[in-house]
Nucleic acid binder design. Structure first.
Length: 366
DNA sequence: GTATGCTTTCGGC
DNA sequence: TTACGGCCGAAAGCATAC
């Protein structure tokens, strides 16, 4: 029985743009910008991922494409549309390599994974580092993709470690070093600390993870309650017992699309919503063989404000009609409740996914 | 008072 | 002129239960 775990977090560097560089090495060295074009006009849309050359010019994820083009006007930059099919294939191949190095494996998104390597590294962080070096090398040799790796005693420390040296980095934090490693970092780096919690922490003089660690467990539970308080205290001292475990591909499936123009015409929006409903249903029920309990409608208004409405059923269902009917009801409600804005983008989400124990569903119930 | 579960919003990539 | 995706899980806010 090992009491010390060795957890490795692997994060593929600027993944989408790096895959594009790999597919066409001639673009390497130039700024590469992978874009999501919305189709509304020539350059409408945003930047998904940019390589480091583009980032030097201030081009980062999420900025409008037109903005990025302006910033890169004077240099020879490459703008490409996203190609998710390609990135998924490359991701799966790399995940396959990572899995070979692991005793426990957990994928965390398309470009991230955790592994636990206890048996192979014999509790030695030195050995884990050698393993990680080999892993990086195999990924690069076979797939021509670099990644940044963090090694730590748990997922929390490994993940933060991986973020310290990018791109193509490798950072090891031993259990003894964990607390000192975390202590200067801002509390916001911890999972569980969002804007609101950060503000509360700041108000009681806690800015860094070190401040949090020395604040005292009891005082902390006094402020945040025993559950969150204890969680924060443990995180601050580098303690995280959450297991590395294989998980379902995702907890929810959603599709969103940008309307041809801003509108509040319920029939116009309804048509789009219906086809999104069919898409998410196909993915969840037909492709993944799951049932679900919740259906949500999401909307982005003309001022880019975001709103959503959802409904949870008492029992799981696999019915496409249930999805279509629910989103239409939610859409009608939503338009009544938001009289002041036009709708720019609209989306449908299915969540609360339920495994259907091996049984194939009868078509009449699907 | 705290835990739990649901809904909505936030924020990272 | 000022530009603006598509996902996902985390965080926050609230209601209810114990």
């Amino acid at each position: 029985m090992y009491s010390v775990r060795v957890v490795i977090h692997i994060d593929f560097d600027y993944f989408f743009a790096q895959v594009e560089e790999r597919e066409n090495p001639r673009i390497k060295g130039k700024p590469v910008v992978v874009c999501v074009y919305s189709g509304r006009s020539e350059d409408s849309g945003v930047v998904s991922t940019a390589n480091y050359e583009a980032r030097e010019h201030g081009v980062n994820s999420g900025i409008p494409i037109a903005f990025a083009k302006r910033k890169l006007k004077s240099v020879h930059a490459v703008f490409l549309p996203v190609n998710h099919t390609l990135y998924d294939i490359v991701s799966e191949r790399i995940m396959g390599i990572i899995r070979k190095y692991s005793d426990k494996f957990e994928q965390a998104g398309v470009d991230e994974a955790y592994i636990e390597v206890i048996g192979r590294s014999g509790e030695s962080f030195e050995k884990a580092r050698e393993l990680a070096e080999k892993l990086k090398e195999e990924i690069f040799t076979k797939e021509r993709i670099t990644c940044s790796i963090g090694i730590g005693p748990n997922k929390l420390v490994a993940k933060i470690a991986a973020g310290r040296q990018k791109p193509n980095g490798l950072t090891t934090v031993t259990p003894e070093a964990a607390e000192k490693f975390l202590s200067p970092l801002p509390v916001r780096e911890l999972i569980g600390v969002g804007r609101k919690t950060e503000r509360v922490l700041h108000s009681i003089g806690i800015k860094t993870i070190g401040d949090l660690a020395s604040y005292g467990k009891d005082k902390l539970t006094g402020v945040f309650g025993s559950s969150l308080g204890l969680y924060l205290h443990n995180s601050a001292i580098g303690v995280d017992k959450s297991p590395v475990e294989e998980r379902r591909k995702s907890e929810s499936v959603s599709r969103i699309s940008t309307l041809k123009e801003d509108t509040r015409d319920i029939d116009e929006i309804g048509k789009v919503v219906e086809s999104l409903a069919e898409e998410v249903h196909r993915n969840v029920v037909e492709e993944q063989g799951l049932m679900f309990k919740s259906v949500s409608l999401m909307a982005v208004m003309d001022d880019l404000s975001i709103a959503s409405r959802s409904q949870t059923f008492r029992n799981p269902t696999g019915s496409v009609e249930a999805v279509k009917k629910t989103v239409k009801v939610l859409l009608r409600q939503f338009l009544d409740q938001e009289p002041d804005h036009l709708v720019r983008r609209v989306g449908v989400k299915i969540s609360n996914l339920i495994e259907v124990s091996g049984q194939r569903m009868l078509p009449e119930f699907a």
